[in-house]
Nucleic acid binder design. Structure first.
Lengths: 228, 228
DNA sequence: TGCCTAGGTGTACGGCGTACACCCCTTCTT
DNA sequence: AAGAAGGGGTGTACGCCGTACACCTAGGCA
């Protein structure tokens, strides 16, 4: 009567899994704020000892990566109508909606290298919408950077970060990129050609891209003013 | 011969001060990365015991606030020429340059409420340039939000955060705002009138502002494409 | 039957921010 | 000149964090 003891609170807990851990972490962060999410508090939530989590996530960084990966994966991918401006608008507003549902997710996402599969997939889809709409590769490239920049002068968007990490794996995944993310691959290739030797990501001129976006905004508002 | 012992490394250290602490912290973060800046490492750098720092900064948050405050204060305030687009452009590129000099500063700044005097002063000056250029108060308001938003759909810019904190002090500083930051006060007042009951900062519709900026960018790039 | 291994446990370490009680040296008062 | 006051550096200690490492244990497979 006592040996299979702990049926303590009625619900017998299913065994842990990476997915269960990540979703519990998301729920906990939603409810209690990201700053009070620790390996210990999360373990406690799952009625488990802290070290048990490490059988499912490599470390806390990996936990956070997994959390944003799920949130980004939940972005609604509406079907394209063919009007690129409308489609892009919808996709971006869907992303916004998904992230607003978890208030911790934006800072966490931004604090990280963030180039996870879900993220790349989102960016690739967006890029594809521009290209399908007839924008040139260059213009699409600029636009993607414009969308990622914050324009106070507080720049450096979501790319960059985490430089090589491991020359082997980097080269391998770069080779695999076109297959999974054809649109990203296309603008990457074009950028590489136009400016072979450059500082950060191949062929990207941060300063020029920042100024492009800034001018787009300034010209846009100038035009609005001119039209009264 | 021994009692006034420690003239240890030649340079007798001057006494600490808030400014010396903050500048040492900036130098340390520049050299070693923000993630290895701790109260202990900083104290060690200053040949002092960790708790000594607390006589000059309230806590680590305050230390970080002070650091960005100095960096933001170093933004070059070029004289206005009267051509608002040019002036705004210059001011923003100056901000970018100032922040790029300290790679840790952008994430730190964004992680914080950030509404320090130097920050408000920068924003007020920028706002003033738009207003002086003849833009309407409403358009200026929208533009300021557009500049603060990041357009992946990963929104919520630099405003918001830290809601009341202390109803007393809040009301006091709101009353003092027009004197120090007249331009900010003007758009705040206008926003308040147009939409008396609203969720976050008085009279600001996040969603609408986000969409305004997004459309500005999309229309701008659409126009570029049309001109080949 | 007995081994292998995936997954949960327990203990422990070093680092963090910081509360609190000191003490000493300077400066100001009378 | 004496003594009070207090600003600023010190020492100790607490509770939290992430996580390394050794261990145990239950189920599946040979």
């Amino acid at each position: 009567m006592g040996t299979l003891s702990d049926q303590n609170a009625g619900t017998r807990r299913t065994t842990l899994s990476r997915d269960r851990v990540l979703r519990a972490a998301i729920a906990y962060a939603d409810a209690n704020g990201i700053e009070s999410l620790s390996m210990r508090s999360l373990a406690n939530e799952l009625d488990v000892v802290p070290m048990a989590l490490y059988k499912h996530v490599a470390n806390k960084e990996d936990l956070l990566d997994g959390m944003v990966e799920i949130v980004v994966g939940e972005i609604d991918q509406a079907a394209a109508t063919g009007e690129w401006k409308h489609d892009v608008r919808l996709r971006i507003l869907a992303a916004r909606a998904a992230l607003l549902g978890h208030s911790w997710s934006r800072p966490v996402l931004e604090s990280r290298g963030a180039m996870t599969p879900a993220m790349l997939s989102y960016l690739d889809a967006l890029t594809g919408l521009f290209l399908a709409g007839g924008l040139s590769v260059d213009l699409t490239h600029q636009m993607m950077h414009a969308l990622g920049n914050r324009m106070w002068g507080f720049s450096q968007e979501l790319f960059a970060a985490t430089p090589p990490k491991d020359a082997e794996t980097l080269k391998a995944q770069k080779a695999a990129l076109p297959a999974h993310y054809p649109n990203l691959a296309e603008i990457a290739k074009a950028a590489m050609h136009s400016d072979p030797a450059s500082r950060r990501a191949p062929g990207c001129d941060d300063q020029a891209e920042f100024e492009f976006a800034l001018d787009l905004l300034l010209d846009g508002v100038g035009r609005l003013q001119a039209h009264r």
